[in-house]
């Protein structure tokens, strides 16, 4: 892939200042579900600190599966997943639970507890770090945690919805709450599976801007799956394309034109 220099200005600084160990490195990962054909094989890519990496690919290419494999919600068959220096595939169940706290996860939908308040849902982001009844609901929470949750909610602009029931939110608002919960986790990276699917263009852009801002301001790594090529192109630093069971594209976003991305499918 050729590397056009125009339009690459703002990303270049970061590419150069890439830290030695990436937050996440995936190497030679393969997965097949029982009784099915191989979903993907020999996948390798990295998620550097402070960058947004987008995974694109046609329906059923295995993007969601790949994301789940990265925290072993789905067990990969072979290959390695490293979070920092820590080899995930070698961990015991207990160590794995601990390692997962380093990754925030935003799913496509239906991920909030509908019968609880928005603030409680955000608070649950801290359940990775702390255990116990005080984090079950906002009414029981210690003051500092409650304030932290409120602050995270304010970051996504939903502080006025704190005590609303989560099932009364619109799709876009729920998505933002899910992002706030990931923030509450104080993780080093956020994985987001189609965070903007089913959102209108404006809310979609807002989520993307938020993720990008967070990654740049707080040096978070963001790994997201997207079907929106213009999002992938304009909000991420690197694009990984998944097709025909393998990585067929792995390039800085400024090196990929929109039409190239669309032709990828």
């Amino acid at each position: 892939m050729n590397m056009p220099m125009a339009g690459a200005v703002e990303c270049d600084v970061k590419t150069v200042a890439k830290p030695a160990t990436p937050l996440l490195s995936v190497a030679s990962l393969s997965k097949r579900y029982d009784g099915q054909d191989v979903i993907f094989r020999d996948i390798s890519f990295e998620l550097p600190k402070g960058q947004v990496v987008s995974i694109i690919g046609p329906n059923g290419a295995g993007k969601s599966t790949l994301l789940r494999c990265c925290v072993r919600l789905v067990e990969p068959d072979t290959g390695s997943v490293k979070i920092g220096q820590c080899e995930l595939t070698a961990l015991s169940h207990r160590q794995l639970v601990k390692a997962r706290t380093r990754v925030g996860f935003v799913f496509q939908k239906h991920q909030l507890v509908g019968r609880m308040s928005v603030l409680s849902n955000v608070l649950h982001g801290a359940l990775g770090r702390h255990r116990g009844p005080r984090l079950w609901a906002q009414a029981l929470a210690p003051r500092d945690q409650r304030e932290a949750a409120y602050h995270c909610l304010a970051q996504v602009g939903l502080q006025d919805f704190a005590l609303r029931r989560a099932d009364q939110l619109s799709g876009g608002q729920s998505q933002r709450v899910a992002v706030a919960r990931a923030l509450m986790q104080k993780s080093e990276m956020i994985f987001a599976d189609e965070p903007t699917a089913s959102l209108d263009p404006r809310s979609g852009n807002e989520i993307m801007e938020l993720l990008q801002r967070l990654s740049h301001e707080q040096s978070l790594g963001v790994l997201m799956v997207s079907h929106d090529m213009s999002h992938a192109q304009s909000f991420s630093d690197r694009i990984v394309g998944l097709r025909d069971k393998g990585v067929k594209l792995n390039a800085p976003s400024h090196a990929c034109s929109l039409s190239e991305l669309r032709n990828f499918f």
Binding site: K98, R102, K109, H124, G125, L127, A137, F191
Partner: peptide, 20 residues
């Protein structure tokens, strides 16, 4: 799904049972 979302971030089993 809410349970899986909390599992993904390393929440404990008891907490997930109660909360999700």
């Amino acid at each position: 799904q809410p349970n899986e979302a909390l599992k993904a971030i390393g929440a404990g089993t008891v907490d997930r049972c109660v909360v999700a």
